[in-house]
């Protein structure tokens, strides 16, 4: 357990609790944002190791938030995973094309989520 900091961007309270508890139980530290704007601010302030980004958010949507992260050199290299209930056909390809480093659809398989998070954190360190 290296205790990487993961920024979870999620507007649904219960899902936020799920992701927080899973990540903390797995040994990560979490930062939490419930809107896109908040996510961008927190990312530039704390420069987390990974961002799990919901797409449908109250103010900026996840895609726009990603653009802002990429535009700011402090946050440009942070890996960002789309973590979304937008899981219609073609959505995965669409989000990867937008520049997300990965895509996890809701409902998530907790073990899979942990696997992907771990993979990206290790990839970043290595």
């Amino acid at each position: 357990m290296t205790g990487e900091r993961i920024l979870v961007v999620e507007d649904n309270e219960k899902n936020m609790k799920l992701f927080r508890d899973v990540l903390v139980a797995t040994g990560y530290r979490t930062l939490e944002a419930t809107t896109g704007g908040e996510a961008v601010d927190m990312a530039s302030e704390h420069t987390p190791d990974l961002v799990l980004m919901d797409i449908q958010l109250p103010d900026l949507d996840g895609v726009e938030a990603l653009r802002r992260l990429r535009a700011d050199e402090r946050t440009a290299t942070i890996p960002v995973l789309a973590l979304t209930a937008q899981a219609m056909r073609g959505d995965r390809e669409r989000f990867l094309a937008e520049g997300f480093d990965g895509y996890v659809s809701k409902p998530v398989n907790v073990r899979e989520l942990i696997g992907i998070v771990r993979q990206h954190c290790e990839g970043r360190l290595g």
């Binding site: 899902n15 799920l18 992701f19 409902p107």
Partner: peptide
Amino acid sequence: RTPLNAIIG
């Protein structure tokens, strides 16, 4: 899918 995420998760 959003509530299902919490249920299954």
